[in-house]
Design a protein around this nucleic acid. Sequence first.
DNA 1: GTTTTCGTCGGACAGCCTGTCTTTCGTCGG
DNA 2: CCGACGAAAGACAGGCTGTCCGACGAAAAC
Lengths: 207, 207
Amino acid sequence: MPPPRKYDQRLRAKAADQTRRRILDAVYQRLVEAPFEQVSMDKVAKLAEVSRSTIYTAFGSRAGLFDALGMDLLHRGGFTDMVTAVLQPDARRGLRDGITGNVHMYAAHRDVLRALFSMAQLDADAVGGTVRRLEDGRAQGMNDLAQRLHDQGALRDDVSIDQAGHLLWLHSSFDAFDLLFTGRSLSADTVAALMARAAEHALCRAV
Amino acid sequence: MPPPRKYDQRLRAKAADQTRRRILDAVYQRLVEAPFEQVSMDKVAKLAEVSRSTIYTAFGSRAGLFDALGMDLLHRGGFTDMVTAVLQPDARRGLRDGITGNVHMYAAHRDVLRALFSMAQLDADAVGGTVRRLEDGRAQGMNDLAQRLHDQGALRDDVSIDQAGHLLWLHSSFDAFDLLFTGRSLSADTVAALMARAAEHALCRAV
DNA sequence: GTTTTCGTCGGACAGCCTGTCTTTCGTCGG
DNA sequence: CCGACGAAAGACAGGCTGTCCGACGAAAAC
Protein backbone atom coordinates (compact mmCIF):
# COMPACT_ATOMS: atom_id res chain seq x y z
CA MET A 1 0.00 0.00 0.00
CA PRO A 2 1.14 3.56 -0.63
CA PRO A 3 2.42 5.50 2.34
CA PRO A 4 -0.61 6.96 4.12
CA ARG A 5 1.33 10.01 5.07
CA LYS A 6 3.33 12.29 2.81
CA TYR A 7 6.93 12.74 3.63
CA ASP A 8 9.06 15.55 2.27
CA GLN A 9 12.60 14.93 3.26
CA ARG A 10 15.08 17.70 3.69
CA LEU A 11 17.57 16.99 6.42
CA ARG A 12 17.37 13.24 6.10
CA ALA A 13 17.88 13.26 2.37
CA LYS A 14 20.93 15.39 2.85
CA ALA A 15 22.31 13.06 5.46
CA ALA A 16 21.74 10.14 3.09
CA ASP A 17 23.60 11.95 0.34
CA GLN A 18 26.46 12.51 2.71
CA THR A 19 26.79 8.83 3.48
CA ARG A 20 26.71 8.08 -0.26
CA ARG A 21 29.52 10.58 -0.69
CA ARG A 22 31.51 9.12 2.22
CA ILE A 23 31.25 5.69 0.62
CA LEU A 24 32.31 6.93 -2.83
CA ASP A 25 35.23 8.80 -1.28
CA ALA A 26 36.24 5.63 0.55
CA VAL A 27 36.30 3.58 -2.64
CA TYR A 28 38.29 6.29 -4.37
CA GLN A 29 40.74 6.48 -1.49
CA ARG A 30 41.10 2.73 -1.33
CA LEU A 31 41.86 2.50 -5.05
CA VAL A 32 44.47 5.23 -4.77
CA GLU A 33 46.16 3.83 -1.69
CA ALA A 34 46.23 0.20 -2.74
CA PRO A 35 45.73 0.09 -6.51
CA PHE A 36 46.89 -3.48 -6.81
CA GLU A 37 44.71 -5.02 -4.16
CA GLN A 38 41.21 -6.28 -4.45
CA VAL A 39 38.61 -3.81 -3.17
CA SER A 40 36.12 -5.66 -1.04
CA MET A 41 32.86 -4.23 0.20
CA ASP A 42 33.96 -4.95 3.73
CA LYS A 43 37.07 -2.80 3.44
CA VAL A 44 35.15 0.03 1.83
CA ALA A 45 32.57 -0.14 4.61
CA LYS A 46 35.19 0.01 7.32
CA LEU A 47 37.01 2.86 5.60
CA ALA A 48 33.80 4.85 5.21
CA GLU A 49 32.80 3.98 8.77
CA VAL A 50 29.58 2.58 7.50
CA SER A 51 27.87 -0.75 7.72
CA ARG A 52 28.39 -3.08 4.80
CA SER A 53 24.65 -3.40 4.34
CA THR A 54 24.39 0.37 4.03
CA ILE A 55 26.45 0.20 0.85
CA TYR A 56 23.99 -2.26 -0.57
CA THR A 57 20.98 -0.10 0.31
CA ALA A 58 22.71 2.92 -1.21
CA PHE A 59 24.12 1.38 -4.39
CA GLY A 60 22.40 -1.98 -4.82
CA SER A 61 25.47 -4.04 -5.59
CA ARG A 62 29.17 -3.97 -6.08
CA ALA A 63 28.64 -3.17 -9.74
CA GLY A 64 26.29 -0.35 -8.77
CA LEU A 65 28.90 1.10 -6.48
CA PHE A 66 31.57 1.20 -9.17
CA ASP A 67 29.04 2.44 -11.67
CA ALA A 68 28.27 5.32 -9.35
CA LEU A 69 31.97 5.94 -8.92
CA GLY A 70 32.31 6.23 -12.67
CA MET A 71 29.41 8.65 -12.87
CA ASP A 72 30.92 10.67 -10.07
CA LEU A 73 34.22 10.91 -11.92
CA LEU A 74 32.36 11.84 -15.07
CA HIS A 75 30.76 14.82 -13.33
CA ARG A 76 33.63 15.97 -11.17
CA GLY A 77 36.67 14.93 -13.15
CA GLY A 78 36.78 17.68 -15.73
CA PHE A 79 35.23 15.80 -18.62
CA THR A 80 33.26 18.81 -19.76
CA ASP A 81 36.39 20.94 -20.13
CA MET A 82 37.84 18.28 -22.37
CA VAL A 83 34.72 18.17 -24.53
CA THR A 84 34.69 21.94 -25.03
CA ALA A 85 38.39 21.82 -25.87
CA VAL A 86 37.69 19.36 -28.67
CA LEU A 87 34.79 21.37 -29.97
CA GLN A 88 36.58 24.68 -30.52
CA PRO A 89 36.32 26.11 -34.05
CA ASP A 90 39.85 25.29 -35.18
CA ALA A 91 39.83 21.49 -35.49
CA ARG A 92 43.58 21.18 -35.45
CA ARG A 93 43.80 23.08 -32.20
CA GLY A 94 40.91 20.94 -30.99
CA LEU A 95 43.04 17.88 -31.59
CA ARG A 96 45.95 19.26 -29.61
CA ASP A 97 43.93 20.73 -26.75
CA GLY A 98 41.59 17.75 -26.60
CA ILE A 99 44.38 15.23 -26.26
CA THR A 100 46.19 17.42 -23.76
CA GLY A 101 43.08 17.94 -21.65
CA ASN A 102 42.32 14.26 -21.85
CA VAL A 103 45.77 13.32 -20.65
CA HIS A 104 45.64 15.62 -17.66
CA MET A 105 42.25 14.36 -16.68
CA TYR A 106 43.51 10.77 -16.93
CA ALA A 107 46.60 11.65 -14.90
CA ALA A 108 44.53 13.19 -12.12
CA HIS A 109 42.56 9.98 -11.62
CA ARG A 110 44.92 7.35 -12.93
CA ASP A 111 44.50 4.67 -10.30
CA VAL A 112 40.74 4.87 -10.19
CA LEU A 113 40.35 4.96 -13.95
CA ARG A 114 42.71 2.07 -14.37
CA ALA A 115 40.73 -0.03 -11.94
CA LEU A 116 37.49 0.95 -13.64
CA PHE A 117 38.70 0.19 -17.15
CA SER A 118 40.36 -3.06 -16.16
CA MET A 119 37.27 -4.25 -14.38
CA ALA A 120 35.11 -3.33 -17.34
CA GLN A 121 37.36 -5.31 -19.67
CA LEU A 122 37.58 -8.35 -17.47
CA ASP A 123 33.95 -8.57 -16.51
CA ALA A 124 31.46 -6.98 -18.86
CA ASP A 125 29.06 -5.48 -16.34
CA ALA A 126 31.24 -5.38 -13.26
CA VAL A 127 31.10 -1.61 -13.36
CA GLY A 128 27.64 -1.17 -14.79
CA GLY A 129 27.29 0.75 -18.02
CA THR A 130 29.20 3.88 -17.11
CA VAL A 131 32.46 2.93 -18.75
CA ARG A 132 30.67 1.92 -21.90
CA ARG A 133 28.72 5.18 -22.05
CA LEU A 134 31.86 7.17 -21.42
CA GLU A 135 33.74 5.40 -24.18
CA ASP A 136 30.83 5.69 -26.58
CA GLY A 137 30.89 9.42 -26.03
CA ARG A 138 34.60 9.56 -26.71
CA ALA A 139 34.19 7.53 -29.89
CA GLN A 140 31.52 9.93 -31.09
CA GLY A 141 33.64 12.94 -30.26
CA MET A 142 36.68 11.59 -32.06
CA ASN A 143 34.67 10.71 -35.14
CA ASP A 144 33.28 14.22 -35.20
CA LEU A 145 36.74 15.66 -34.81
CA ALA A 146 37.98 13.52 -37.70
CA GLN A 147 35.17 14.84 -39.88
CA ARG A 148 35.94 18.43 -38.94
CA LEU A 149 39.65 17.95 -39.58
CA HIS A 150 38.71 16.74 -43.02
CA ASP A 151 36.30 19.61 -43.64
CA GLN A 152 38.97 22.13 -42.70
CA GLY A 153 41.47 20.50 -45.02
CA ALA A 154 43.82 19.49 -42.24
CA LEU A 155 44.00 15.76 -43.05
CA ARG A 156 46.70 14.39 -45.29
CA ASP A 157 45.46 13.08 -48.61
CA ASP A 158 46.32 9.49 -47.81
CA VAL A 159 44.30 9.50 -44.56
CA SER A 160 40.60 8.80 -44.81
CA ILE A 161 38.09 10.19 -42.34
CA ASP A 162 37.53 6.73 -40.92
CA GLN A 163 41.23 6.15 -40.47
CA ALA A 164 41.55 9.50 -38.76
CA GLY A 165 38.75 8.53 -36.40
CA HIS A 166 40.51 5.27 -35.56
CA LEU A 167 43.81 6.95 -34.81
CA LEU A 168 42.19 9.69 -32.75
CA TRP A 169 40.39 6.99 -30.81
CA LEU A 170 43.72 5.39 -30.07
CA HIS A 171 45.54 8.57 -29.13
CA SER A 172 42.80 9.81 -26.82
CA SER A 173 42.42 6.53 -24.94
CA PHE A 174 43.25 5.93 -21.33
CA ASP A 175 45.24 2.84 -22.23
CA ALA A 176 47.52 4.76 -24.56
CA PHE A 177 48.01 7.39 -21.88
CA ASP A 178 48.75 4.82 -19.22
CA LEU A 179 51.24 2.96 -21.37
CA LEU A 180 53.38 6.08 -21.43
CA PHE A 181 52.55 7.63 -18.06
CA THR A 182 52.91 4.50 -15.95
CA GLY A 183 54.72 2.13 -18.29
CA ARG A 184 57.44 4.64 -19.12
CA SER A 185 57.30 6.85 -16.03
CA LEU A 186 56.70 10.02 -18.01
CA SER A 187 55.10 13.17 -16.63
CA ALA A 188 51.60 14.12 -17.72
CA ASP A 189 52.95 17.08 -19.67
CA THR A 190 55.45 14.90 -21.50
CA VAL A 191 52.79 12.36 -22.35
CA ALA A 192 50.44 15.07 -23.55
CA ALA A 193 53.05 16.62 -25.81
CA LEU A 194 54.18 13.27 -27.16
CA MET A 195 50.68 12.02 -27.94
CA ALA A 196 49.44 15.26 -29.42
CA ARG A 197 52.46 15.46 -31.71
CA ALA A 198 52.24 11.80 -32.66
CA ALA A 199 48.57 12.14 -33.54
CA GLU A 200 49.20 15.28 -35.55
CA HIS A 201 52.02 13.71 -37.50
CA ALA A 202 50.02 10.58 -38.15
CA LEU A 203 46.99 12.49 -39.41
CA CYS A 204 47.69 15.97 -40.58
CA ARG A 205 49.45 17.70 -43.42
CA ALA A 206 52.84 19.11 -42.67
CA VAL A 207 52.64 22.74 -41.63
CA MET B 1 64.67 -38.86 4.79
CA PRO B 2 65.75 -39.17 1.15
CA PRO B 3 64.06 -41.80 -0.94
CA PRO B 4 65.96 -45.06 -0.43
CA ARG B 5 65.24 -46.12 -3.95
CA LYS B 6 66.03 -44.24 -7.15
CA TYR B 7 63.18 -43.54 -9.49
CA ASP B 8 63.68 -42.57 -13.14
CA GLN B 9 60.38 -41.70 -14.66
CA ARG B 10 59.66 -41.94 -18.33
CA LEU B 11 56.09 -42.96 -18.96
CA ARG B 12 54.76 -41.36 -15.80
CA ALA B 13 56.46 -38.06 -16.49
CA LYS B 14 54.94 -38.03 -19.94
CA ALA B 15 51.52 -38.73 -18.56
CA ALA B 16 51.96 -35.89 -16.08
CA ASP B 17 52.97 -33.54 -18.86
CA GLN B 18 49.86 -34.53 -20.76
CA THR B 19 47.60 -33.62 -17.87
CA ARG B 20 49.40 -30.28 -17.53
CA ARG B 21 48.73 -29.70 -21.19
CA ARG B 22 45.09 -30.72 -20.89
CA ILE B 23 44.67 -28.21 -18.08
CA LEU B 24 46.37 -25.40 -20.00
CA ASP B 25 44.25 -26.15 -23.04
CA ALA B 26 41.15 -26.03 -20.87
CA VAL B 27 42.01 -22.59 -19.49
CA TYR B 28 42.73 -21.35 -22.98
CA GLN B 29 39.47 -22.78 -24.30
CA ARG B 30 37.50 -21.33 -21.40
CA LEU B 31 38.95 -17.87 -21.96
CA VAL B 32 38.12 -18.02 -25.65
CA GLU B 33 34.60 -19.33 -25.22
CA ALA B 34 33.56 -17.08 -22.35
CA PRO B 35 35.95 -14.13 -22.27
CA PHE B 36 33.75 -12.05 -20.02
CA GLU B 37 33.13 -14.62 -17.34
CA GLN B 38 35.21 -15.38 -14.33
CA VAL B 39 37.43 -18.43 -14.79
CA SER B 40 37.20 -20.55 -11.67
CA MET B 41 39.47 -23.47 -10.89
CA ASP B 42 36.42 -25.66 -10.64
CA LYS B 43 35.29 -24.93 -14.18
CA VAL B 44 38.78 -25.46 -15.54
CA ALA B 45 38.99 -28.77 -13.70
CA LYS B 46 35.69 -29.98 -15.08
CA LEU B 47 36.59 -28.87 -18.58
CA ALA B 48 39.95 -30.66 -18.43
CA GLU B 49 38.31 -33.69 -16.84
CA VAL B 50 40.69 -33.47 -13.95
CA SER B 51 40.32 -33.12 -10.23
CA ARG B 52 40.57 -29.61 -8.88
CA SER B 53 43.33 -30.63 -6.53
CA THR B 54 45.35 -31.91 -9.48
CA ILE B 55 45.56 -28.35 -10.80
CA TYR B 56 47.02 -27.26 -7.50
CA THR B 57 49.61 -30.03 -7.46
CA ALA B 58 50.54 -29.23 -11.06
CA PHE B 59 50.64 -25.42 -10.89
CA GLY B 60 50.65 -24.51 -7.23
CA SER B 61 48.01 -21.84 -7.35
CA ARG B 62 45.68 -19.91 -9.56
CA ALA B 63 48.46 -17.40 -10.21
CA GLY B 64 50.82 -20.23 -11.11
CA LEU B 65 48.31 -21.59 -13.58
CA PHE B 66 47.96 -18.30 -15.42
CA ASP B 67 51.67 -17.75 -15.20
CA ALA B 68 52.18 -21.07 -16.93
CA LEU B 69 49.59 -20.12 -19.51
CA GLY B 70 51.56 -16.98 -20.25
CA MET B 71 54.78 -18.95 -20.61
CA ASP B 72 53.01 -21.39 -22.88
CA LEU B 73 51.81 -18.57 -25.12
CA LEU B 74 55.29 -17.10 -25.08
CA HIS B 75 56.73 -20.32 -26.47
CA ARG B 76 53.99 -21.34 -28.86
CA GLY B 77 52.47 -18.03 -29.88
CA GLY B 78 55.02 -16.91 -32.45
CA PHE B 79 56.92 -14.47 -30.30
CA THR B 80 60.24 -15.51 -31.78
CA ASP B 81 59.12 -14.68 -35.33
CA MET B 82 58.23 -11.21 -34.15
CA VAL B 83 61.60 -10.72 -32.50
CA THR B 84 63.52 -11.74 -35.61
CA ALA B 85 61.32 -9.43 -37.67
CA VAL B 86 62.33 -6.50 -35.50
CA LEU B 87 65.98 -7.42 -35.64
CA GLN B 88 66.41 -7.46 -39.41
CA PRO B 89 69.18 -5.20 -40.74
CA ASP B 90 66.97 -2.47 -42.14
CA ALA B 91 65.56 -0.78 -39.04
CA ARG B 92 62.73 0.90 -40.90
CA ARG B 93 61.55 -2.41 -42.29
CA GLY B 94 62.03 -3.81 -38.80
CA LEU B 95 59.55 -1.26 -37.53
CA ARG B 96 56.97 -2.18 -40.15
CA ASP B 97 57.42 -5.93 -39.97
CA GLY B 98 57.73 -5.94 -36.21
CA ILE B 99 54.49 -4.08 -35.65
CA THR B 100 52.73 -6.19 -38.28
CA GLY B 101 53.97 -9.44 -36.75
CA ASN B 102 53.06 -8.22 -33.33
CA VAL B 103 49.54 -7.38 -34.38
CA HIS B 104 48.93 -10.77 -35.95
CA MET B 105 50.24 -12.54 -32.90
CA TYR B 106 47.97 -10.44 -30.70
CA ALA B 107 45.01 -11.14 -32.97
CA ALA B 108 45.58 -14.89 -32.83
CA HIS B 109 45.32 -14.92 -29.04
CA ARG B 110 43.26 -11.86 -28.32
CA ASP B 111 40.94 -13.18 -25.66
CA VAL B 112 43.62 -14.94 -23.71
CA LEU B 113 46.04 -12.05 -23.87
CA ARG B 114 43.36 -9.61 -22.86
CA ALA B 115 42.52 -11.67 -19.82
CA LEU B 116 46.17 -12.00 -18.92
CA PHE B 117 46.96 -8.32 -19.28
CA SER B 118 43.84 -7.20 -17.47
CA MET B 119 44.53 -9.54 -14.59
CA ALA B 120 48.11 -8.35 -14.38
CA GLN B 121 46.97 -4.73 -14.23
CA LEU B 122 44.27 -5.31 -11.68
CA ASP B 123 46.19 -7.57 -9.35
CA ALA B 124 49.96 -7.30 -9.39
CA ASP B 125 50.86 -10.96 -9.07
CA ALA B 126 47.64 -12.58 -10.18
CA VAL B 127 49.43 -13.97 -13.19
CA GLY B 128 52.87 -14.41 -11.72
CA GLY B 129 55.76 -12.63 -13.37
CA THR B 130 55.24 -13.76 -16.95
CA VAL B 131 53.45 -10.67 -18.17
CA ARG B 132 56.07 -8.45 -16.58
CA ARG B 133 58.91 -10.40 -18.18
CA LEU B 134 57.20 -10.35 -21.55
CA GLU B 135 56.66 -6.61 -21.39
CA ASP B 136 60.20 -5.98 -20.20
CA GLY B 137 61.44 -7.81 -23.26
CA ARG B 138 59.25 -5.74 -25.51
CA ALA B 139 60.48 -2.53 -23.90
CA GLN B 140 64.07 -3.60 -24.47
CA GLY B 141 63.38 -4.51 -28.06
CA MET B 142 61.66 -1.23 -28.83
CA ASN B 143 64.44 0.80 -27.24
CA ASP B 144 66.96 -1.08 -29.37
CA LEU B 145 64.89 -0.46 -32.45
CA ALA B 146 64.72 3.25 -31.64
CA GLN B 147 68.50 3.34 -31.34
CA ARG B 148 68.94 1.55 -34.63
CA LEU B 149 66.48 3.83 -36.38
CA HIS B 150 68.57 6.73 -35.17
CA ASP B 151 71.84 5.12 -36.22
CA GLN B 152 70.49 4.53 -39.70
CA GLY B 153 69.34 8.13 -39.97
CA ALA B 154 65.68 7.22 -40.21
CA LEU B 155 64.41 9.36 -37.32
CA ARG B 156 63.16 12.86 -37.91
CA ASP B 157 65.37 15.57 -36.42
CA ASP B 158 62.77 16.62 -33.88
CA VAL B 159 62.37 13.10 -32.47
CA SER B 160 64.86 12.00 -29.84
CA ILE B 161 65.85 8.37 -29.35
CA ASP B 162 63.97 8.26 -26.06
CA GLN B 163 60.84 9.68 -27.64
CA ALA B 164 61.08 7.15 -30.42
CA GLY B 165 61.32 4.38 -27.84
CA HIS B 166 58.21 5.68 -26.09
CA LEU B 167 56.19 5.84 -29.27
CA LEU B 168 57.33 2.42 -30.44
CA TRP B 169 56.38 1.06 -27.02
CA LEU B 170 52.91 2.49 -27.52
CA HIS B 171 52.45 1.29 -31.08
CA SER B 172 53.63 -2.25 -30.36
CA SER B 173 51.43 -2.72 -27.28
CA PHE B 174 48.55 -5.10 -26.93
CA ASP B 175 46.32 -2.35 -25.60
CA ALA B 176 46.84 -0.19 -28.66
CA PHE B 177 46.13 -3.18 -30.87
CA ASP B 178 43.00 -4.09 -28.94
CA LEU B 179 41.63 -0.55 -29.00
CA LEU B 180 41.49 -0.78 -32.78
CA PHE B 181 40.84 -4.47 -33.29
CA THR B 182 38.07 -4.88 -30.75
CA GLY B 183 37.10 -1.29 -30.01
CA ARG B 184 36.70 -0.39 -33.67
CA SER B 185 36.01 -3.83 -35.15
CA LEU B 186 38.89 -3.66 -37.59
CA SER B 187 40.60 -6.65 -39.17
CA ALA B 188 44.08 -7.61 -38.07
CA ASP B 189 45.48 -6.55 -41.43
CA THR B 190 43.82 -3.16 -41.20
CA VAL B 191 45.11 -2.62 -37.69
CA ALA B 192 48.61 -3.66 -38.70
CA ALA B 193 48.68 -1.29 -41.64
CA LEU B 194 47.21 1.57 -39.62
CA MET B 195 49.59 1.20 -36.71
CA ALA B 196 52.69 0.67 -38.81
CA ARG B 197 51.93 3.76 -40.86
CA ALA B 198 51.03 5.83 -37.81
CA ALA B 199 54.29 4.86 -36.11
CA GLU B 200 56.31 5.59 -39.20
CA HIS B 201 54.73 8.99 -39.69
CA ALA B 202 55.19 9.84 -36.03
CA LEU B 203 58.86 8.88 -36.01
CA CYS B 204 60.50 8.83 -39.37
CA ARG B 205 61.57 11.27 -41.99
CA ALA B 206 59.35 11.57 -45.01
CA VAL B 207 60.45 9.25 -47.80
C1' DG C 1 56.12 -61.11 -8.31
C1' DT C 2 56.67 -58.10 -4.71
C1' DT C 3 57.54 -53.60 -2.98
C1' DT C 4 58.18 -48.75 -3.39
C1' DT C 5 57.00 -44.42 -5.43
C1' DC C 6 54.07 -40.99 -7.06
C1' DG C 7 50.36 -38.88 -9.99
C1' DT C 8 45.65 -38.52 -9.42
C1' DC C 9 41.24 -38.41 -7.10
C1' DG C 10 37.64 -37.10 -3.92
C1' DG C 11 36.25 -34.85 -0.16
C1' DA C 12 36.62 -32.06 4.01
C1' DC C 13 37.92 -27.82 5.80
C1' DA C 14 39.05 -22.79 6.84
C1' DG C 15 38.67 -18.36 5.19
C1' DC C 16 37.22 -14.64 2.24
C1' DC C 17 33.96 -12.81 -0.78
C1' DT C 18 29.03 -11.16 -2.53
C1' DG C 19 24.22 -10.60 -2.05
C1' DT C 20 19.86 -10.98 0.64
C1' DC C 21 17.11 -10.73 4.51
C1' DT C 22 15.44 -9.54 9.14
C1' DT C 23 15.64 -7.04 13.43
C1' DT C 24 16.58 -3.13 15.94
C1' DC C 25 17.65 1.70 16.79
C1' DG C 26 17.61 6.58 16.33
C1' DT C 27 15.66 10.42 14.54
C1' DC C 28 13.19 13.48 11.28
C1' DG C 29 8.47 14.98 9.77
C1' DG C 30 3.53 15.49 10.06
C1' DC D 1 2.84 11.75 19.71
C1' DC D 2 3.59 8.56 16.10
C1' DG D 3 4.53 7.08 11.42
C1' DA D 4 8.46 6.97 8.06
C1' DC D 5 12.90 5.93 6.97
C1' DG D 6 18.07 5.83 6.94
C1' DA D 7 21.33 3.14 9.07
C1' DA D 8 23.40 -0.66 11.91
C1' DA D 9 24.19 -5.38 13.00
C1' DG D 10 24.03 -9.92 12.23
C1' DA D 11 22.58 -14.28 10.22
C1' DC D 12 22.50 -16.84 6.14
C1' DA D 13 23.27 -19.11 1.49
C1' DG D 14 26.37 -19.78 -2.04
C1' DG D 15 30.75 -19.28 -4.63
C1' DC D 16 35.51 -18.86 -4.61
C1' DT D 17 40.69 -20.15 -3.28
C1' DG D 18 44.04 -22.80 -0.99
C1' DT D 19 45.40 -26.67 2.06
C1' DC D 20 45.29 -31.16 3.78
C1' DC D 21 44.51 -36.04 4.00
C1' DG D 22 43.40 -40.84 2.79
C1' DA D 23 42.85 -43.93 -0.91
C1' DC D 24 43.65 -45.98 -5.38
C1' DG D 25 46.19 -47.59 -9.20
C1' DA D 26 49.87 -47.88 -12.26
C1' DA D 27 54.75 -47.20 -13.32
C1' DA D 28 59.27 -48.22 -11.67
C1' DA D 29 62.69 -50.71 -8.96
C1' DC D 30 64.16 -54.88 -6.91
